[in-house]
Each structure stands twice: as structure tokens, then as C-alpha cells.
Simulated scan of single mutants.
Amino acid sequence: MAKQITFASLAHATKKKVTRREKFLAVMEAVVPWSRLLALIEPHYPKMGSKGGRPVMPLAVMLRIYCLQQWCAVSDPMAEESLYDSDAMRRFAGLELGDDRIPDETTILNFRHLLERHALPEAIFAEVNAHLAENGIALRSGTLVDATIIDAPSSTKNKAGTRDPEMTSTKKGNDWYFGMKAHVGVDADSGIVHSLETSTAKVHDSRVWDELLHGEETSVWADKAYVNAEREEAFTGPDKFWGVMRKAPKGDDLHPIDEQINHLIAKVRSKVEHPFRVLKRQFGYIKTRYRGLAKNRAQLFSLFALGNLYLVRRRLMA
């Protein structure tokens, strides 16, 4: 969203170093299908402000600020602060300090609520994947299935004086976690997330399965948590492979052949960790931001949609 440079941005334009954030935003500027997403949201976006109130912010500006929130892991108040502090973020949003009105935290909050109210994060996720398919990044024969725990704040120092009642605890190894889970189905070829489901943390990974398959798989890949004799039998066939890691019978060691099979499966299914790495390391999403599953579920759809674009950015820009 290029605008004519004002005196306020002249010093920025003449600086010698391009920061990592500016490089990242330039890449995402090129790979996000802005026109498609704007067309998706536009029917639900108000055309004018309330009677006697300020005019609405341009939809393109609000969508870009919403994306900045996902990439930079900032809350609604911090998004407003960042637009004043960061020239890179302000320019990406198409705003000029001194010339344009900077949206306040309430405006940013209301836009997020509008997306949640109309289930638009799920629609954005589907639209992004459709865009990738049209660019030759389509689903192939295999699906990698996995889940990750998203920590939630366990503090009771809040207005309600309680932890989030929709989050639960689960044990992984010797450690306990409090929060929710994101269950994903990932294309074995491209590594993009094609299916997403969420649950509270105590739900066992294996209970979410059918929702993560697109139905045309010739192979499925998962860890030992998904071992299930009935599912394995239903998936057998001349052109199908059950790539779920073998589990040793109780009291016995794993057979050496099964150990070799597990080693091969692990090499294939390692790609399922890439979307999680993008969310938690690249985007800084390490804790739930909101109370309740619904709001956090909506954010996860947006995060994985943008994460898919980031994962295949080089192919999209080639």
C-alpha cells in the first residue's frame, strides 16, 4: 500500500540499513492475496461510521493491522502503540504520521470482533489455501497428523479472579501444561496446513482424527499417540500406507524391524513440526491471548493461514 512520502517519513526513506522486520514485511506484502481477503471481508465491513461519529477506517488498513498483530504477537493496545512507535509497521499499514488518523485500540478490537462474529478467520484460512492451490501448491497423496499444546495464562490475578474455565491441564512426559491444543492435518509434500481443529488441552490427540484428513490420502503419518487398530484396518489397501509409528506390546521391546520402520516414519513426519515452528518462533505465538476457546480458535485459523503463506513464500515469489 504505497503512499507518497511526507516529511515525517523522509528520514526513514534515506536511512542506510533495512531492518529484519522491514525485510519480513516486504515478503509478506508480496505473498498475501490482499484483494481476495478484502473481497471476503468487505460485505461484512461497515460502510460508514455511526451517526455523528468518526468515519470508519479503510478496510485495507484494518486488515493489514490485523495481520501485523499475528506476525508481531501484539495485543490490541500494543498494536496502537506500535503504530506510533514503528515506522515500518505504520508504513506497511499505509499510514503516515501527521497525515492519517491512527486507529485506537477500541477500533482494532472491534475489527477483530467483527472477524470472529462472522467466522471470517476460518474463511481466510480456506481462501488462502484455495489461493495456494491455484498457484500449483495443491494437496498431494499424504497427510501428516499432529497436535501442539498452546499454553494459557494460569494466573488468577484478573478481574474474574479465576483461571480460564475453558482451558484444562494435561501431562506430557513429566511436565504439566495448562491451556488448549491445536490439531492439524499437514500436506506431506508442501508442508502446508490443510485442516485445523482445536480442543481443550486434556483431549487426547487420537480423539481428533477424521476432521484432519481431506479424504483422498494414500498415506497418513503420525506418532504413537494415534495408534488405532480399527483405523489401521480401515486404511489398508493396495495403494495405501499406514505411517503411524509402531508401539511395542506391553512388557516387550519393540521389534528391530518396527524400529527401522519408526525411523523412516519419523523422517517423513518431521515436516509436521514446521508450521508449529513458524507460529511459535517466527510469529512469537507461545501463549493464548484471549479467554475462551472460541476467540483463540479464530486467531489460530488466521495464524495458520498466514503461516502457510510464509512456509511457501519462495515458491510464491519465484
Rank of each mutant, 00 (worst) to 15 (best):
D239F: 08
D252H: 15
L213G: 02
K224P: 00
E230T: 14
T236N: 08
K224W: 05
E230K: 14
R246T: 05
E233G: 06
A234E: 15
T236H: 10
A222R: 01
W221A: 00
S206M: 05
D258G: 01
P256A: 11
D205G: 02
E233L: 10
D239I: 04
R246C: 10
E230H: 09
H214I: 03
F241Y: 15
V220T: 07
R207G: 00
G215M: 06
E233S: 13
I257S: 07
E211Y: 04
E217D: 11
E259H: 11
G243I: 03
G215C: 05
T218P: 00
V220I: 15
P249Q: 09
P256V: 04
D205F: 01
K247T: 13
R207D: 12
E216T: 07
A248S: 15
D258A: 04
D223T: 03
D253T: 05
F235H: 04
A234N: 15
V227N: 07
A234H: 13
E233V: 04
N228M: 07
W221G: 01
R231G: 07
A229H: 12
G215K: 09
F241M: 10
P256M: 13
V208I: 15
P256Q: 11
K250L: 02
E232Q: 15
R207Y: 07
H255Q: 09
A225E: 11
P249I: 00
R207P: 00
T236A: 14
F235T: 02
A222I: 03
D252G: 00
V220R: 02
R231P: 01
A229N: 10
G237K: 05
A248E: 09
E211W: 03
G215W: 02
E211R: 08
K224E: 11
W242K: 09
M245H: 05
R231E: 09
D210P: 06
V208R: 04
A248D: 07
H255G: 00
E233R: 12
V208W: 02
P238R: 14
E216N: 06
V244S: 02
N228V: 03
T236Q: 15
L213A: 02
L254Y: 02
G251I: 12
S219I: 05
R207T: 13
T218I: 00
A225H: 09
E230L: 12
D258C: 02
R231V: 06
R231C: 07
H214V: 04
D239A: 11
D252T: 07
W221V: 06
D205S: 01
V220N: 03
D239P: 06
G237W: 10
W209D: 06
V220D: 01
